[in-house]
Nucleic acid binder design. Structure first.
Lengths: 214, 214
DNA sequence: GTCTATATCCTGATAGAC
DNA sequence: GTCTATCAGGATATAGAC
C-alpha cells in the first residue's frame, strides 16, 4: 500500500473516531482497525497519538480557513467596508457547509481535552484567521470598542461551534419542529441573528477605539 | 469517615478533574487520589465511573437550574410578558456567576464524550428547563416562528457554553485587551448582544406560530 | 513500509479481610 | 465503610523480522 494511501486512511478514520468519541476516548487500536491498517502504522507515519491529532486537524482546518479567507477577500473587494452579513457569511459558510460528522471534531477537541494539549494547537490553527475577521468586523462596526468586538466575536464562535457539534443538548426543540430546518436556512438564520447582535448598541461607555487614539 | 463526607470528597474531586481533563481522560485512580479516599470507594458509593459522572452533574446542575427557574418566575411575575433581557438574565446569570472552573465541566461533557453517553444525560438535566425558557421567549417575541425561537435559543446556548468553557480558542483577542472584562461586564454584553439577536427581524416567510394556528 | 510480538504501564471493577 | 490485593483486559509505543 502506498504511503500516501495508508496515511490518508488513518487520517480518515481518526477524523471520524475523534469526532465521535473524543481524543482520550479513541484508542489507536480503534483507529487502525477502522482504517484497515496495522497498529504500528500510526506511530510509523505520525510519531504519536498526539501528532496524529495535530495532523488530522490540520488537514481538516487548513482548507477550511483558506476558503474563509478567499471569501473574505471577495467581500472586501466588493465593498469597503463590507457588510457585517458579508463578513459573517465568509466566516460561517465554509464551516457550516462542510460535513457535519467531521466538523464535530472541532467542538470535541476544543472543549473536551486537557487545556495543555489544546491551547497551542487551537491558537496555531485559528488564531491568525480569527484576527483577520475581527479586524474586518471592527472596520464594519466603527461604533464599537475593541472589547465589544472581541466579546461578540467570542459569542459568534460559540454559536457556530455549538451548531457544528450537532449535540442534542436542546436539539429536541429543533427536532420537534414540523420540518427540520435546512442547512442553508440555519446559516441564514445564524447570519441574521449574529449580525443583529453585532449591531446592538454599546452598553458601556463608548471608549475610544484603540486605532482612533493617536 | 462519614459516608456523606466521602461521597462529597469524591464528587468534589470528580468535578474538578472531569472539568479539566474530560470524562474519558480522567481515571478513577486520579479521582480517588485527589479526593484522598480509597480506590474502591467510587464503586462502593456510586457503582461505576459513568454513574459517578451522572451524580457529579446532577449535584452541579440541579441547584443551577432551580435558581434559573426562581429568577424566571420573578421576572414573569414582574411583567407580562417579561422583557427578553429579563429572561436572558434569569438564564445566564446563575451560570456565568458560578465557579468557572467547575462550570467548564458542562462544555467538556457536552461536546467531548461519546454521543451515546451524553444524550440522555443532557436531555434529562436540561431539557425541561430549556423548554420553560423557550416558551417564555416565544411569548416575549410573538413576531417570531417556532423555528426561529428554537434556532436562536440554540445560538444562545452555544455562546454561553463557549464562554463557560473558558477555552482559549480565541481568547487571545480578549486577553489582549488593556484590561480583561469583568464577569458582570461579560454578562451584560452577552445579554445585550443576544437580545438584539432575538429581536432581529424574521428572515424567512413569517409562518404562523403553531399556537396561533387553531 | 508493513508486519508480529511484546514491553511497560494503566484501566475499571471486584473479592474478601478487617 | 474502608482497606489490600488482584483480575482481566486495554493503552501507547517500540524492537526487530521480512
Amino acid at each position: 500500500m502506498a504511503t500516501q494511501d495508508t496515511q490518508d486512511r488513518i487520517l480518515d478514520a481518526a477524523e471520524r473516531l475523534f469526532a465521535q468519541r473524543g481524543f482520550a476516548g479513541t484508542s489507536l487500536r480503534a483507529v487502525t482497525s477502522e482504517a484497515g491498517v496495522n497498529l504500528a502504522a500510526v506511530n510509523y507515519h505520525f510519531g504519536s497519538k498526539e501528532e496524529l491529532l495535530t495532523a488530522t486537524l490540520q488537514r481538516l482546518v487548513g482548507p477550511l480557513n483558506a476558503e474563509r479567507l478567499r471569501r473574505l477577500d471577495q467581500v472586501e473587494a466588493a465593498a469597503d467596508p463590507p457588510s457585517v452579513e458579508g463578513i459573517l457569511d465568509a466566516f460561517l459558510r465554509p464551516a457550516l457547509g462542510a460535513d457535519p460528522a467531521t466538523m464535530r471534531i472541532v467542538a470535541v477537541v476544543l472543549y473536551s481535552e486537557s487545556a495543555d494539549l489544546v491551547r497551542d494547537l487551537i491558537r496555531n490553527l485559528f488564531g491568525e484567521y480569527a484576527q483577520r475577521f475581527i479586524r474586518a468586523l471592527a472596520r464594519a462596526l466603527p461604533q464599537l470598542g475593541d472589547a465589544e468586538i472581541a466579546l461578540r466575536f467570542h459569542f459568534l464562535v460559540g454559536s457556530m461551534t455549538h451548531v457544528l457539534s450537532g449535540r442534542p443538548l436542546l436539539t429536541a426543540e429543533v427536532e420537534a419542529l414540523p420540518e427540520p430546518p435546512s442547512r442553508e436556512r440555519v446559516l441564514e438564520e445564524m447570519i441574521a441573528t449574529l449580525a443583529a447582535g453585532f449591531r446592538a448598541p454599546q452598553v458601556h461607555k463608548p471608549a475610544r477605539r484603540s486605532e482612533d487614539a493617536a
